[in-house]
Every structure is written in structure tokens, then in C-alpha cells.
Write a protein that binds this DNA or RNA. Structure first.
Lengths: 185, 185, 185, 185
DNA sequence: CATGAATGAGGGTTCATTCAT
DNA sequence: AATGAATGAACCCTCATTCAT
């Protein structure tokens, strides 16, 4: 699975052949089918384990409570933290989701994402209602921008680089809440 | 080309067969080869025409001059404006670039992007130097966040929706410069 | 199609590979798919053309009318006559139907057979009602025996042998109507 | 063996996988190889046990003696009686023989069938010589028709149906000797 | 400008069989 | 007696591409 995930991340799901994965594992392609039903089921396991962990972490943040800014900050940190161990899964989501979503078996991922959207949008709206966030922005649109910006970072983010996950998360949160301008709003 | 672009955008480059494109055009697959050298050359033309236009627009903004905030605002608007006519090309870049970049023939796109990066990062740094932008943010990191957020929007942006390209651009610029928080920075 | 039919007849549907067929045709296996959708569709065409012709012939016999003995005799002759040009199709029906019937696409063959059964059984019953045939035999059971005996003959019948199709048919009809015994019934 | 026979009968020899058999037996496919050398040897055992029993029964009939009509009647009854306990073996012979005969190891079955043919044809000819059977019929052809009609009945014969093995045998013998017509021959 | 037949490489998958444990 | 991992060959099928017409 780990080897397959890396190949999917590097070359893309479609461009990775079952034979590639087997080669990497040092076995024959047919032998893979002793462990997996199909190529689809491999990527399914990769993605679902990623989503399961992310959802659990998100729920934990919600349960800890706090004002919307705190909650959003923690959610963002969650994402960037997840980026490292699930780099491959995120990469697949970014590059291959448009292909994978056509298969019924991945419907559950679309539903999971909808639930996540409700969770984030709920926090943004609460922030607007309590006067913490500007109310001239669209909550749903803002969520999508946040979401996309975070996950797409997988394409260039290097944990070994100058900024680690925490560092990038904080940088991102800083821009998100206060913008890049100086001076009064 | 337009038909091919739409198919690439909808199903992805790899998942779109030459036969799909030919069917859409009402001819046989072999006949396509009177118009194109290869499947790669089709997507190449789609992408290069997009990049050419975008680069030209970006350069025009630079030539008009102005303070960094104005320039960045115009650059963002440029992008969102380009999103509509070049929706398919952007979609391909988002979904299939990871696959396409392995071919030498697309190296020029990577180089074009590097140039664009220099252009944007230059403006951000100029803003920091003139005290317009916070200097506790990383210019390169910030550029990447801006870039990703804009282009990834192609996945959900609908020009016929509540916000048109201009609207989304302004929304985005508002958040970018001043953040989503109220109150003093 | 003719080549494929012969291979199916000789080795069986499952044991005949697409490559076998292509080799026989002097092309590559992939090239077959320019002419056929799938291996299934090849056998489908073979079988349906056989059934179509047989049904048409049967209907023609019915339309010509006559007493049940005459009609049954003609139906039997029809079958044996069909055996020669559609040898391969009959062979496939005998050997591979048990496998093929699991696929929905061949449901129509089962339905066609039911219709044929009604036709034959109708004639046998009419013979019994008019006192032409013994009424201590079961019409449906008798039909099945007739049917099976005829078609299974494909396994050994050789048109170039001592008896041609007509000869075998007449032999069969003789036994069927009057039995192999001499003396009074 | 019983489980394998049922699967072979239901789905066909080729379409039944070793894994199918093992699943049915509640073990893993590899474990089957402690009991059988190969898939072929399983079907071999099924078929040979069927043929052994049938041959023994046939020889017993011959030894009991009697006029050809009596002997043939008993041979037919033998077959239909064997149909019930060896349903699966007969099914395999009907559906898969064309495939299995290509393997040398099953040559003995072809030879056993030749011997059986001699036995039956001998009785028919004896009947013709003694004036019991019409001599305008071909003994060998008639044997084949009898044989085929009997065994192919496995496809629809249901011991729990209106007619049991004995009933079908008698029905068949009645038609065979006296035909389905009324009136003088 | 288009056809349509064919190529050839490779795709995911199946499956009888082996074998160390 | 059974496991479970692996083999290796083959299977059906796909698809970008070529080319004579």
C-alpha cells in the first residue's frame, strides 16, 4: 500500500500500472491480487484511511470547542499536519479525483467532503455572527478557497524545507485572518 | 481543439481517448491525424495558447505600473478573467499537469511558470519593501498560496453562478489583503 | 466469423482465445476489435444468425400446413438441413450453452427456444387429438427427446458420410414414427 | 469430489475454478492439492467412477441374457437409473467432453465408449438378424441416436418431477420400439 | 479530407499450481 | 491437513498511431 501510494502520487493513478506496483514490491503483478481485489481497491484503501484520520481529527477539534478563530486555526493545522503522513493520498485527491469520482465506489468520499464543508462553513458563519469575521465575505466561497489552498500545497510543500507543517499552517493562518496588508483595514 | 479541450477538462487527459475526440468531432479517429501530430500535440496547443494569453496579459499589467497592491489586484483579476475562456486548459493544468510534466515537450511550461513566479514574487517583495505588505510573511510561500487558490477554483467556479469572475476576484483580493478578521490587526 | 465459429466448434467457446481467432484470420488479436465489440458478440452473432434462419424455416413449414405427421417430418428435415451450414453454431449450443446462458445478453436464445417448444409440442398434441399419434406418450417429454437427439447428432454427423442430412432425417423420422420393432404394435 | 462434481455440472469444468471448489469445501485453494494432483485429476475421478459403474451394470445385463428387446430395455433402464446418482458426471460428459477429450489422459474414456458402442450395436444387429427389429435401419446410427437421447436428457431430467428414472426409461423404450404413430406400420 | 483496417504494445485481471511454514 | 503468499503464463481488451485507398 505504501509503495502503491507513492507511485500513485508520483505518476498519477492511471499512469501507474499494476505491474509498476508489483515491481516496486518485488513480486509479480498477479501476486498483488492475493492482497487486493483490484487496482481500485488499493487506491480506495489509501484514500479512505486518509479521510478517516482527517475526519476523526476534525471532530476532536470541534469537541475541544473554542471561539471560531481558534477552531479554524486548529482545523488548518490539522490539515497541514495530515499532509505529511498522507502526502500520497492528498496528491491522489488533487490529481486523480476528477477521474476516480466517476466510479460509484468512491461516492462515499464526495459525501465525506460535503460533511466536512458543513463543519467548516458552520464555523465561519458562527464567526461572522459573533462579529469575529467580516460579514461581507461569502462563507462557502471562503471555505473552498481555504480548502483548496491548503490541499493543493501538497504539490510543493516539503516538510524538510525551511518551514515545517506547523510553520506553513501558521503562515497560512496569519494571512487568512489578517491579510497581507499593513495599516488599518 | 475546442472539443478536445472540453473532453480533457471533463474526463482528464489520459481518460480521454483519441476516439472520444474524433467521435465528438464526427469523424474517425484516424482522421484526426490530418490535423494533429499526436494526442500530446493537441493538449500542447491547448495549454500553450492559454499560457501565451496569460503571459501577455500579465506583462500588460506590469507595463501599466502602479503600486504593488494595484498590480497584484490586476494580476488576480487577470487570472479569474482567464478562467472563463480557458476553463478547459486550467482544468487540464490542475488535473493532468503531474502526468504531462514527465514529457520533455512540456518543459517550456515549467519554465513559463518560473518566470511568472518571479514576476509575482517581485511585486510582493516590492510591497514589503515599501511597507505596504507585512514583512513577516514569506513572499514565495505567499505567491504559491495565491496562485494555487486562484487556479484550483476552476474546479467549482461557475461563471453563471452568484459571483462572476470579477466578483470572485474581488472577493479573493479582499480576503488576501485584509484577511477575514475584523478588528485591529 | 466463419473462422471463429469453426474454432468455437472445435475447441469450445471458453477454450478458444481471441488470439486463436486472430491467428486464424492472419491478423493481430487487437485488430479483431475493429470488427467485433467482444468475444461474446462474436458468438452472439453466430448463434443469432443460426436461430434466425431456423425460426424462419420452421415458420414456413407451419404455414405450408398439412397433417401433424407431415409437419413434424418437415420440421425434422429442417433441423438436419440446418445442421450442415450451421454446424458450428449447433456445436456451440450443445457444448457451451450451459456457460453462455449465464449472461443476460443470451436470454433471447432461451426465449426463442421456448417459442420453438410451443410450436413442436402443439403439433404433437394435435396429432394425439386427431388419433394420429399414441396418446400414452407425454408431448413435452417427447419433444425434448426429439430435439435433443437431433441436435446432439452434430457431434458425429458427417455430411460426407454414408448418409447425408436428408438420409439421416428420414432414418430418424422412420424410427420416431414407427419404432424399431417389427410386427404389430 | 461431490462438491467439485456439482460445481462442474452447474458451471462447467472450465468455468469452475479450483478456488470455487475450495471455497465450497471451506478450505483454501492450495489445500486442495493435498487431496488431488490437479484439477484434471478431480474430473478424471468423477468420470471414471461413473464409467466404471455403468460398464459393470451393462455387463451384468449382458450376462443375464435374454432376447435383444429385453436386453436393450434393460440397458436403457440402466442408463436412466445411473442418471440420478451420476448426474454431475453425465452433465460434464455432455458439456465438457469436447474440451476434455483433447487431453491424452482421457483417451481411455473414448475407448470405453467404443466398447459400449460395440455392445449396443451387437444387440441391435442381433435383433435385426432374428427378425425382431426392422432391417431397414442402420444399427450404428440407431445406437447413436439412442445414446444421445438418453444422456442428453440429463439437461432437463428431474427425478423429483412427474416421471422418475424408471418412468422416463419406459416412456423412452415405448417410443423407441413402437414409434409414436398409431395404426399399422 | 476522410476512411477503415490494421498494428503493437501494453493494460488489469484470472487462475492452476507450488511451497515454505 | 491446512495456510497464505507467490508464481507465471495467459486472458480479454484498449488505444495511440499508421497507412493504403
Amino acid at each position: 500500500m505504501r509503495l502503491a501510494a507513492e507511485l500513485f502520487a508520483e505518476k498519477g493513478y492511471q499512469a501507474t500500472t499494476v505491474r509498476n506496483i508489483a515491481d516496486e514490491a518485488g513480486i509479480l503483478s498477479g501476486s498483488l491480487y492475493h492482497h487486493f481485489d483490484s487496482k481500485e481497491s488499493i487506491v480506495d484503501e489509501i484514500l479512505s484511511s486518509f479521510f478517516d484520520e482527517l475526519n476523526a481529527d476534525n471532530k476532536a477539534v470541534l469537541e475541544r470547542g473554542g471561539d471560531p478563530r481558534t477552531v479554524l486555526t486548529e482545523l488548518v493545522r490539522n490539515c497541514f499536519r495530515t499532509l505529511v503522513p498522507h502526502r500520497a493520498a492528498v496528491m491522489v485527491m488533487q490529481n486523480d479525483w476528477n477521474y476516480l469520482r466517476q466510479f460509484d465506489r468512491f461516492d462515499y468520499l464526495a459525501r465525506a467532503e460535503e460533511e466536512t464543508e458543513r463543519l467548516w462553513v458552520g464555523q465561519i458563519k458562527r464567526g461572522q455572527e459573533t462579529g469575529l469575521f467580516r460579514d461581507d465575505i461569502d462563507a462557502r466561497l471562503t471555505y473552498r478557497m481555504i480548502r483548496d489552498t491548503i490541499w493543493v500545497a501538497v504539490r510543493w510543500f516539503q516538510p524538510a524545507g525551511p518551514l515545517d507543517a506547523e510553520g506553513v499552517a501558521d503562515h497560512y493562518v496569519a494571512v487568512l485572518f489578517d491579510g497581507i496588508s499593513t495599516g488599518p483595514r
